[in-house]
Design a protein around this nucleic acid. Structure first.
Length: 829
RNA sequence: GCGAGGGUGGCGGAACUGGCAUACGCGCCGGACUUAGGAUCCGGUGGGGAAACCCGUGCGGGUUCGACUCCCGCCUCUCGCACCA
């Protein structure tokens, strides 16, 4: 054993040992239950940052702990190696992504290894490898066959700086999620996945998985299912024409005093009086421009609108009401038109007030007695709509009904009259996957003018997969401007049509890289399979992921696509699960010394490399795990890092100092206090690791180590304590644990050695110290035998001199005895 | 506005299903060893008070023998969504 704790020599030694023996390969324990622990796929930047270190520290503790608990643990690793950063770097520096990426991977991988993460590297994958992305193409074709993938002309979000289309989810407050440029709108054809077909399944699945409430709520919100009624408002004087609106509040229909349509609603221009058309067109243009500026989804400006001159009839009141166009009505949601009920919708209310449109009150709160327009108008004095459910009035035959009931009754009536039908809307949109970039999966489609004149797209036959990215001259092709880069590679784009043999062109666009990360977790199971994405047998053995760890920033992007993809794979018969990850852990962000999120732009990053270099991987891991609970944000603290390093130093010296005494001792001995504490610590740490409470697990180990340092008794007891301490520490600080285990002369392959078990006889005490309260205030503490009954405990407590003083001369009204906890005397006065 | 999660010493944070608030670590104070110590070890450390004691988990109420924990009403912070009809 070394004299001094020197992680620099200890850590590489054990890392080599693990690699040489291939100890972390999954599948070696076929008869054991499996455990699939996974960290989210990283983009391979050249250096691992603290956020990564945090994720991997967490998954590694779980992996190492589970291995010792006898599980067949699968803890794979890979690279999200396609994507914009590599391509942008290529544009800037002229280095081909295919050249740079492997270097970055090698460097990042070295960091992961130096952190001591116990990965099964035999299944490592890179998404930019044709061996991987050919299956993206395969999935694309399968979805095409099933109508889950289709070509659409869509108004899309376009980032002028990245020169690419963005998915809805990639637009944040009108800005590109990646570069922050203002997103503009463009209409171009694109390929899309019909994720909306799975909206309800995605919603229902949320009930069966153990994910943070926050993420579940975000997904629910994002899917945004809304149940309502579509109803037609017939256009006056134009037989057969009607504005169809969507509403969730059919009960308020008698209060609908106008219809508001999106400015680009097709019926508006068709039906508006000639003299209005120019004005309407101008308004629509203005709204479109404003939308671009503010960005879709951002806080809208003042509500604005314009009377179109069109008149429709409220199907229930039969009154003639105007149709307005309004900037707050979205053409992409519902029917693109709404019935406006200013009395009972805040938005409609504001609009009505601004433009002097009538406000008809038809719902009153349950507790109001008078069923009059005047009484309800009191609400108007508060200057807001009454948007809650209540009771109907001035609503014909429906008056008096509660809202819930009226909704259904009015819907039924509308249906009977053939002017309405139940409808469901979702906020969720289909997933546009076309990207005008080079560094991604080529879309396996061919366009042929002769046999496919409409350019609907001819699928590349399976036998021709993969469609491999052509090698390119970076400077010529990756200019960051103009048409998609692949379109410039004539030798690649121009091919023969697989149908007619005539001249044809390949689809020059590539897939969104979120495709790559949607199913990688399954490819890990069978990464070199060239007949199918992965084998069913492997899927049945290892899926789903038991614990999935990553940042909460992926709550609606990756984590929704990945669930969708799994459902699709289940339908294809590739796996028997519909949810990819049973448990999700979203770890908090790591803040820098300044309390701000670590980021290059703020210049406050502390690279893990630096910490590992200076203190070793074990210290880095321990600090990361100790500083805060896994799900919470954590603050960087140089002092705390030192503290963890000191702790490891103390443990090292503890074992070193004890060695002469314990070397020849046999673990065990009398059931003294240290021995009991040791066994209780096994229970505690085990429970804490099961609950992912790494910070308290470490503090329990500190307590045990402190107790061991003070111990002067039996060498066998001390030996057992040290062995167990080292075992319990090993998932968190594996290198020093190996080293100390070796020093103690421990036998066996340590990282596969069984987790210690507490001796039940040693975890129950024969005497307890319990608190004594008088009227709920702590007044003393007494020792009580474990066998003592309530009466005896009460007696002992009352005799405690301090307590006796408080009880003297008082009447004890009541005594509460909580075994093992406390005694409370309730006295009068 | 809607949704989720927080508010406990100087700091990070403990406290299982209501039962000794502040475990563990950091920092700070004092001491030991030392030429020296930013190494290591020992002791102390919520506030007030000489003490007995009193007060203390964002604020105000409530339930209870007993509340950081449960209930009601607020304040405040962080994150996400936000004209979704």
């Amino acid at each position: 054993m070394q004299e001094k704790y020197d992680p620099k020599s200890i850590e590489p030694r054990w890392q080599e040992h693990w690699a040489k023996r291939d100890l972390f390969r999954a599948g070696n324990r076929r008869d054991a239950p499996k455990k699939y622990v996974l960290a989210m796929l990283p983009y391979p930047s050249g250096e691992m940052h603290m956020g990564h270190a945090r994720v991997y520290s967490i998954t590694d503790v779980l992996a190492r702990y589970s291995r010792k608990r006898g599980f067949d643990v699968f803890h794979p690793f890979g690279w999200d190696s396609f994507g914009l950063p590599a391509e942008n770097a290529a544009i800037k520096e002229g280095v081909h992504p295919a050249v740079r990426t492997p270097k970055n991977i090698a460097s990042f991988k070295a960091d992961v290894i130096s952190l001591g993460i116990s990965v099964d590297w035999s299944t490592e994958i890179s998404t930019s490898d044709p061996e991987y992305y050919r299956w993206n193409q395969w999935f694309f074709l399968r979805m095409l066959e099933r109508g889950l993938c289709y070509r659409r002309r869509a108004r899309v979000n376009f980032c002028p700086s990245c020169n690419t289309v963005l998915a809805n989810e990639q637009v944040e407050e009108g800005k590109c999620w990646r570069c922050g440029s203002t997103v503009i709108e463009r209409e171009i054809p694109e390929w899309a996945f019909r994720i909306t077909a799975y909206a309800d399944r995605l919603l229902e699945g949320l009930n069966k998985i153990d994910w943070p409430e926050r993420v579940v709520a975000m997904q629910r919100n994002w899917i945004g299912r809304s149940d309502g009624l579509e109803i037609d408002f017939a256009v006056s004087g134009r037989k057969g024409k009607a504005f169809r609106v969507f509403t969730t509040r059919a009960d308020t229909i008698h209060g609908a005093t106008y219809v508001a349509a999106a400015p680009d609603h097709p019926l508006v221009m068709e039906l508006a009086p000639e003299e209005k058309k120019a004005e309407i067109a101008a308004f629509a243009e203005k709204v479109r421009r404003a939308a671009k500026e503010v960005g879709e989804g951002a806080q809208a400006a003042e509500k604005e609108g314009l009377d179109t001159g069109i008149r429709v009839r409220n199907p229930f009141t039969k009154k003639q009401i105007p149709v307005w166009v309004a900037n707050f009505v979205l053409s992409g949601y519902g029917t693109g038109a709404v019935m406006s009920v200013p009395a009972h919708d805040q938005r409609d209310y504001e609009f009505a007030v601004k433009y002097g449109l009538p406000i008809e009150w038809v719902i009153r709160p349950a507790d109001e007695d008078e069923v009059t327009q005047a009484a309800a108008r009191k609400l108007a004095e508060q200057n807001k709509a009454f948007t809650e459910y209540g009771f109907l009035f001035d609503s014909g035959e429906f008056s008096g009904m509660p809202s819930e009931q009226a909704r259904l009754a009015i819907a039924a009536e509308a249906q009977r009259r053939g002017i309405g039908r139940p409808a469901v809307n979702y906020h969720l949109r289909d997933w546009g996957v076309s990207r005008q970039r080079y560094w991604g999966t080529p879309i396996p489609i061919i366009y042929c003018d002769r046999c496919d004149p409409d350019h609907r797209g001819i699928p590349v036959p399976d036998r021709d997969l993969p469609v491999v990215l052509p090698d390119i001259d970076v400077k010529e092709v990756l200019t960051g401007k103009g048409e998609p880069p692949l379109a410039k590679v004539a030798s690649w784009v121009n091919i023969k049509c697989p149908n007619c043999g005539g001249p044809a062109r390949r689809e020059a666009e590539t897939m969104d890289t979120f495709v790559d990360s949607s199913w990688y977790f399954a490819r890990y199971l069978d990464p070199h399979n060239d007949r199918e994405p992965f084998s069913r047998a492997q899927a049945d053995r290892f899926l789903p992921i038991d614990v999935y760890v990553g940042g909460p920033e992926h709550a609606v992007l990756h984590l929704l696509y990945f669930r969708f993809w799994t459902m699709m794979m289940e339908e294809l018969g590739l796996c028997g699960i519909s949810e990819p990850a049973q448990k999700l852990v979203t770890q908090g962000i790591v803040k820098g010394r300044d309390g701000e999120k670590m980021s290059k732009s703020k210049g406050n990053v502390v690279p893990p490399r630096e910490i590992i270099e200076r203190y070793g991987a074990d210290t880095a891991r321990l600090f990361i795990l100790f500083a805060a609970p896994a799900e919470k944000d954590m603050d960087w603290s140089d002092e705390q890092v030192e503290g963890q390093h000191r702790f490891l130093g103390r443990v090292f010296r503890l074992v070193q100092g004890a060695l002469p005494k314990v070397r020849d001792a046999r673990a065990g001995g009398p059931p003294d206090e240290l021995r009991r504490r040791t066994h209780k610590t096994i229970l505690r740490v085990t429970q804490q690791l099961e609950r992912l409470q790494f910070n308290t697990a470490i503090s329990s180990l500190m307590e045990l180590s402190n107790a061991a340092a003070d111990y002067q008794g039996d060498p066998g007891v001390l030996r057992e304590c040290l062995e167990i301490l080292v075992q319990l520490l090993s998932p968190m600080a594996p290198h020093i644990a190996e080293e100390l285990w070796e020093a103690l002369g421990g036998k066996g392959e340590f990282s596969l050695l069984q987790w210690p078990q507490a001796d039940p006889a040693l975890v129950v005490d024969d005497a307890y110290s319990i608190a004594v309260q008088v009227n709920g205030k702590l007044r003393g503490e007494v020792q009580v035998a474990a066998t003592a009954g309530e009466a005896e405990i009460r007696e002992i407590a009352a005799q405690d001199p301090k307590v006796a003083g408080w009880l003297h001369g008082k009447t004890v009204k009541k005594v509460v005895v909580v075994p093992r906890r406390l005694v409370n005397f309730v006295i009068a006065g």
